[in-house]
Amino acid sequence: MTGPAHPRIWQRFTPQERIARSILYILTIIAVVWSLRTIDIIPEFLYDAPEQTADLFKRMWPFDWAFYPKAIHAALIETFHIATLGTILAILLALPLSFMAARNFTRNPVLRWLAQFIFVSSRSVNSLIWALIFVAIFGPGALAGVMSIAVRSIGFVGKLFGEALEEAQRGPLEALTATGAPRSMILVKGYWPQVEPAFWSIALLRWDINIRESAVLGLVGAGGIGVALDAALNNLYWDQVGLILAVIFAVVIVTEIVTSFLRSRIL
């Protein structure tokens, strides 16, 4: 057997594709250079940044431990409450909406679109912005914090749980339909057992995120440990700032451990 007269040429991309890729690379470089020029780095500040950082840490240490019982502890508990209440409220509001959004449960496209619209609106706004809005409505304090956490979480919980519902196996649902079960029963005995692990997993994940988010809500006056952080920053009490940051860090670690333990038990 003889080989082909000419060596066969193989190329991964067509000439058009190669040109397109080159243009993309050049555009990326232009974008990087352009953005570096716009951010206005002040060299004087950049040069002594390491010293400033070291200085900041020196001022933070030793922590003002006496400050913990005075102000931090109550604020920390409030942060927990904001995150937990906000998550529960979000779940209560998101559950019916996720059934409304699930293609296999809701046939009406207008209802599905409405649910999706609510999810997108909820998710497109950062919880700090929601907090600003709710502080304006309810005044400063934990209520504004709970509401902003809840409203921000509806989109997250609703979207993910709605997708879990859509992945429910059709067979068992069909079997329950064939027994003459009403839709409420198909929901309780057909959908729910199938999506229950996903539900708890989503709820725990959101609670975990909300603890971190509610720690900063106080910066705009929506209650929690962020209020104490804001005050300490404004007064330049760096030993208090350091303590608050350490407490937030510790809390995040603890919730991470707790939620991953619970999640491993559910699945």
């Binding site: 196996q169 067979g171 068992p172 069909e174 079997a175 005995k189 057992p193 199938q194």
Partner: peptide, 13 residues
């Protein structure tokens, strides 16, 4: 009553 090829039980129950 109906019996299915894939049994169609609710697996986690």
């Amino acid at each position: 009553g109906m019996v299915f090829q894939e049994y169609n039980l609710v697996e986690r129950l």
